[in-house]
């Protein structure tokens, strides 16, 4: 059976992620790969994006893993939120469109912190940009 051919490095890794409203929500830092117990083949199951993910890819596995765990503890979530199931990707092209809201992704964690603790306190931070 033939299907669409994709090159992970060329068309997936490091591409821009966009949420369902078109908002930018990170880059594809890595991909999660699992072996299927039925067929024995290796499948890409998820996009990995979030604090620590890029560091792990670039070889700083311990430091990256530490950041990932720290972020999970601070966020009090328990599960690994850097993992975005591939089923949520609605379109793969120059950008990768996701069927989720940016706020639900791990990539929004540091944004939320900066917003709530720093930028959100500056007057005018809600100022709407004119069209």
């Amino acid at each position: 059976m033939t299907g669409r051919i994709l090159y992970a490095g060329l068309e997936l890794l490091d591409h821009q992620l966009r949420d369902r409203d078109g908002r930018l929500c990170g880059n594809v830092d890595d991909l999660e790969v699992e072996r299927s117990p039925d067929t024995g083949e290796l499948y890409v199951t998820a996009i990995v994006a979030g604090p620590g993910a890029l560091l792990q890819r670039m070889g700083r596995r311990r430091l990256g893993g530490w950041i990932e765990r720290a972020n999970r503890l601070v966020g009090d979530q328990g599960r690994d939120r850097n993992i975005i199931p591939l089923a949520l990707a609605t379109r793969i092209g120059p950008n990768i469109d996701l069927a989720v809201d940016a706020e639900d992704l791990a990539t929004a964690d540091t944004e939320r912190w900066v917003r709530d603790h720093l930028i959100g306190h500056l007057p005018g931070n809600r100022h709407r940009a004119p069209e």
Binding site: M1, T2, G3, R4, I5, L6, Y7, A8, G9, L10, L12, S36, T39, E41, Y43, V44, P85, L86, A87, L88, A89
Partner: peptide, 14 residues
């Protein structure tokens, strides 16, 4: 690089 082929089973939830 790694070559991927989209010929696996339908993804759960997708």
């Amino acid at each position: 690089d790694v070559r991927l082929v989209q010929d696996g089973p339908i993804l759960a939830g997708g």
